Simulated assay, not measured.
Amino acid sequence: MISLWDTRGTEVVKALAAERRSAGGVTSGMALSLIVVVDEAQVHEAEAAATIAAAAHPCRLLIVVRTDIDRPQSRLDAEIVVGGRLGPCEAIVMRMWGRLALHAESVVMPLLVPDVPVVTWWHMPAPDRIATDYLGVVADRRITDAAQSGDPTAALRARAADYAPGDTDLIWTRITPWRTLVAGALDARPTAISAARIVAPAADPTAMVMGGWLGARLGITPTLEHTDAAPRMRSVELSCPNGDVLRLVRDGDSAQFTRTGEADQQLPLVRRPLGDELAEELRRLDADQVYADALTAMSGARGLDVRPAHRVHVWHDPVGAGAAG
């Protein structure tokens, strides 16, 4: 491990090359470059998740910690780890203060692995318009997390308004177990569905995306019912034209599946670690059409699938905007 204090981007590049030589260098096995944008308070959580994901997807991990952009003097501290505490990857943790934090790409771009995809993950509230963040524009795939926002519902709608092919959100990833169970139930005995009801807390954004997915796939408008009896999405109920009902009800780390005229079943519904969710999204580097369809049904936004995948950077100075206000 190499630690550089109050350094420059060129020194980070040189130190990484030196550390790679001493560790044997593994760039030829890199599948992608993963940029993580995070606040100082959540660095350890982001590192733990990225370490899990990197075990499944060999990558160069570039963690950008933006701190105190109002600070009059810029500063860069960097920690370089090759095959160490952050798993089998090349990792650089960069803490940026002052105006440098608004121009993180000046340090990050020379560190990207040549000729491999770039993924950017915000483990913090993402910009309303990703085009205002160069680290998002340069990426082939962009991972946000509406749950990090103070208003996840508004954040999801912002993601729909700003969507470009290659975007995804970890709220979508978190309903993968639910989608798997629902799809499995319908595949086991195909049947028409005429209505759907989702029971979840009012503040749980997964219910909105689940409703969007059901609406897009089944051509219906699901009903959302709020409850204070559970901290997360509680149940999904599907009604058939003949009166039969299919119901999945969360019970701890499992779900009880009931279907009219059949015996109840207990199915696994385990909440996964953040690193497993991130690893799932790194499995695909193309546009997620099913996610786009769910966003369309959830928000009413149209034409998401025909928007250009290539983003154009739009410079936005949050310091200047604040001063103007």
Rank of each mutant, 00 (worst) to 15 (best):
S3W: 09
L4Q: 05
D6R: 13
D6C: 10
T10K: 11
T10C: 06
E11D: 15
V13H: 03
R21S: 03
A31R: 05
L34D: 00
L34N: 00
V43S: 02
V43P: 00
I52C: 08
L61Y: 01
G84E: 01
C89P: 00
M94R: 00
W97N: 13
G98V: 13
R99P: 09
H103C: 11
V113F: 03
P114H: 07
D115H: 14
V119R: 07
P127F: 01
P127L: 11
I130R: 13
Y134N: 04
Y134V: 13
L135D: 04
T144Q: 15
A147R: 15
A147E: 15
P152K: 05
R157Q: 04
L170I: 10
I175M: 14
L181W: 10
D187C: 02
P190N: 01
I193L: 03
A195W: 01
A195C: 01
P201D: 12
A202K: 14
D204S: 15
R217V: 10
L218A: 09
L218C: 05
T221M: 04
D228K: 06
D228R: 10
M233I: 15
L238H: 04
L248H: 02
D253R: 11
Q266Y: 10
L267G: 13
P273W: 10
R284P: 06
Y291Q: 02
A292P: 03
D293W: 02
A294V: 04
A301P: 00
V312D: 11
V312R: 08
H313T: 08
H313W: 14
A321T: 12
A323L: 12
